[in-house]
């Protein structure tokens, strides 16, 4: 299970990456994260919404209310052009961090 700080740090890139695939809503985003992380990452479900609102205010994502198939009204989010740029930036930064850790923690060279 990821610790609190690391979990918080993954929220923004994960949300943007999920929305880059297709538009989605809060519940579905959380389910997707749980599924992809094999339940290793668990977000406080209600706390996702202030983050989504913040991203919306920063114009990284756009929200639209729609009526779902079951008749329930849902707020769908989708990525903006600015959000795509932000996602690219975050991807580069996380890749750099990941590469570094891979090299540090990767298999030790055989000395024989």
């Amino acid at each position: 299970m990821l610790n609190k700080e690391l979990t918080a740090a993954t929220v923004k890139p994960a949300v943007l990456a999920i929305l880059a695939e297709r538009e989605s809503y809060g519940y579905e985003i959380i389910k997707k994260v749980q599924e992809l992380s094999d339940d290793e990452i668990k977000w406080a479900e209600g706390a996702l919404y202030p983050m989504l609102h913040r991203l919306e205010r920063q114009r990284l994502i756009k929200a639209v209310w729609k009526t779902a198939e079951n008749g329930r009204k849902r707020k769908y989010y989708r990525l903006n052009v600015k959000g795509k740029r932000e996602l690219d930036l975050l991807r580069d930064q996380w890749s750099a961090a990941s590469n570094l850790l891979d090299k540090l923690w990767g298999p030790k060279p055989c000395l024989n």
Partner: peptide
């Protein structure tokens, strides 16, 4: 109001 409605939709899904 919109935020409460959104939370409620999530609650109903759960």
């Amino acid at each position: 109001r919109s935020a409460i409605d959104e939370l409620e939709t999530h609650l109903l899904d759960a």
